[in-house]
Design a protein around this nucleic acid. Structure first.
Lengths: 198, 198
DNA sequence: TACTGAATTTAAACTAGTTTAAGAACATTG
DNA sequence: CAATGTTCTTAAACTAGTTTAAATTCAGTA
C-alpha cells in the first residue's frame, strides 16, 4: 500500500497510534498522473494537498519573457501544493506538472478540514510541518544570498542526489536561478577539476 | 497596553473571544530592547518567539567574507525568531539585532507549549500563521528569480514604505541582495526619471 | 535504422551587478 | 562646535552570469 510511506512521514513529526494513522491516511486518495500532465495551472484554485509517492513534479512560475522559473521539485516523500491558494482559495500563481509518470496521495480542502475536526491532534502535525517548511525556505534564501552559482549547484547535487538524477540540467539551472548554458560551463569546470592528471 | 496590537493580529487569523485573547496574551512578556542590542546571536539557541510592538530589528546572517546579509526586517506588527532554532532547539544560524530602541512581546518555548496544552485552539492559530509565512517566503523567492534589482527595490519601497523609511540604504541593499553602491545608482536613475523636464 | 525534436555543449559578445577607491553629506559625541 | 565615524554617492575597472547562435549529443518514435 502506498500510504505506508505517508504514515512513516507523519510518524517523523508526531506520535500517532496505528489506528490514528489509519484514520488520517483514510482521507488521502491515490492519484496517477502521467508524464507532462498538470495538476495545477496558473489562475486555478488549488483544491488539493498532495504527497508524492512516486515520480516527480516541477513546481514553477512563468515570467513575462515566457521563461519558466522552478521553485522546487517534488519527488518521492515531498509535498506538492500551492499553499496560499489552498489555504485561502485564491488563484494560483504557479504551475505544477509531472515530469514523469507519478503517483500522489491527495486530500481535498474540505476533507482536510473534516480531518482537523475529527482529530485535533492533526492540527499540531500540520503546524509542525509548516514550521519546517518555513525554516527550509529561509535556508534556501540564505543560500541564494551567500553562495555563488557553482556552490549552489554543488549543494543541490549533494543534498538531493536522487532528484539531480531524475531531472534535466535545464531544469536544475532554472531551479538554481541561472541559464542552462552557464550551468554547462560550471559542470565542465567541475569535471576538469575532478579528473586530476592525464 | 501593548498587547492590544497583538490581540488585533491574532483576530486577523482566527476567531477568539476577549477572554481567550486575554488568556493567550497573558503568556507574553513585554521586553525593551535598546538600539544595537542583540536578542539572538549565531550559535545561541532561540528560546523565544517575539512580536514587535515598536521599533525595528534586522534579522541576518554573516557570510565567510564577513558581510551581513539581511533576511528581513521586523518592525511593528512583525514576528522575530529563528523558527528552526526555537522549534528544534538547535543552534541559530542568524543574528537578530535592534536597529533602534524597540519593544517586543516575547513568549518562551516552555510557555508556548503550556499555552498549546491549555488552549488547543491556539495550535490552529499558529498553523495558519506558519502557512502564511511559507507562502510569503515562496513569493520572496519568486521575486528574486523573476525581478531585477531595480524592480525588487521598487517592490520593496512600495510594499513596505514604513520600513523603507526606518532603515538605511545600506541595509536595504543587503536585503535586496545587492551592494549599496549599486543601490545608489538605481536610486539616482529613478530620481532622474521622476523629475521630468528642467 | 533513419528522423525528428529536445537537451547539452561551446564560444564570442554582452550586461547587470561588484569591487575598489575616494570624496561628500550626515550624525553622534566629547 | 570641532572631530570622528558612518552612510551615501560617484566613477572606473572588473567579473559572474546572460545572450545569441551554432554544433553536438541524446532519446523517442515512425
Amino acid at each position: 500500500m502506498s500510504s505506508k510511506l505517508l504514515k512513516a512521514y507523519f510518524l517523523k513529526n508526531i506520535d500517532l497510534t496505528p489506528s490514528e494513522l489509519d484514520s488520517i491516511t483514510y482521507y488521502y486518495q491515490e492519484k496517477n498522473v502521467a508524464k507532462g500532465e498538470f495538476i495545477l495551472r496558473r489562475g486555478q484554485i488549488c483544491n488539493f494537498e498532495g504527497y508524492v509517492v512516486a515520480g516527480c513534479f516541477k513546481v514553477y512560475v512563468i515570467d513575462e519573457k515566457g521563461d519558466e522559473k522552478i521553485l522546487y521539485f517534488a519527488a518521492r516523500d515531498w509535498w506538492v501544493m500551492e499553499i496560499d491558494s489552498f489555504a485561502n482559495q485564491t488563484p494560483s500563481e504557479i504551475y505544477i506538472q509531472a515530469i514523469m509518470d507519478s503517483v500522489v496521495l491527495v486530500i481535498s480542502k474540505r476533507d482536510k478540514e473534516q480531518l482537523f475536526l475529527e482529530m485535533p491532534k492533526v492540527e499540531r502535525l500540520f503546524r509542525i510541518m509548516s514550521q519546517k517548511a518555513v525554516a527550509a525556505w529561509q535556508k534556501r534564501l540564505i543560500r541564494n544570498h551567500t553562495m555563488n552559482a557553482e556552490e549552489r549547484y554543488k549543494h543541490f547535487v549533494t543534498t538531493y542526489p536522487e532528484i539531480a538524477d531524475l531531472v534535466t540540467n535545464k531544469l536544475i539551472a532554472s531551479y538554481l536561478g541561472i541559464t542552462q548554458e552557464f550551468l554547462s560551463m560550471i559542470r565542465k569546470r567541475r569535471a576538469e577539476k575532478k579528473i586530476p592528471k592525464t
